[in-house]
Amino acid sequence: MDARGPRMAEVLHLTVSIARTPADVYAFAADPRNLPLWAEGLARSDVRQQGDAWVVEGPAGRVTVRFAPPNDFGVMDHDVELPSGVIVHNPMRVLPNGEGSELVFSLFRQPGMSDEQFVADRSAVEKDLDQLKSLLEENPALPSRDGASG
Rank of each mutant, 00 (worst) to 15 (best):
V94D: 09
E102I: 07
D72M: 09
F105L: 01
L103Y: 15
G100V: 04
D77P: 09
M92T: 05
M92C: 13
G100C: 10
S106H: 02
N97V: 00
D77S: 06
L82Q: 15
S101I: 10
N90A: 11
S101G: 08
G100K: 08
V88G: 04
R93T: 09
G74W: 00
M92P: 01
N90T: 13
S84N: 02
G98L: 07
M76V: 09
F105N: 06
P83A: 04
V75C: 06
G100H: 11
V80Q: 14
S106W: 02
H78F: 07
P96E: 09
L103K: 05
V80S: 12
G74Q: 10
D79C: 07
V86I: 11
N71L: 07
G98E: 01
E99A: 14
D79A: 15
V80D: 11
V88C: 02
F105A: 10
V104L: 14
E102H: 04
E102R: 14
L82E: 14
S106G: 03
D72G: 11
P96L: 07
D77Y: 04
F105H: 03
E99P: 01
D77F: 07
L82C: 01
M92S: 08
L95Q: 04
I87M: 14
H78G: 04
V88T: 13
V80R: 13
H78V: 01
F105P: 03
V94C: 06
I87T: 15
V80L: 08
S101D: 12
F73E: 15
E99Y: 10
V104M: 09
L95C: 00
H89F: 02
G98R: 07
D77M: 04
L95T: 01
H89P: 03
V80G: 09
E81G: 13
H78D: 01
M76P: 11
D79S: 10
V104R: 09
V80H: 08
M76G: 07
V75K: 08
E99N: 10
N71Q: 13
V94P: 07
M92R: 07
N97G: 03
L95A: 08
F105D: 00
E81D: 05
G100S: 11
G100Y: 01
F73S: 15
V86E: 15
G85N: 13
I87H: 07
V94H: 01
E99F: 05
N97C: 03
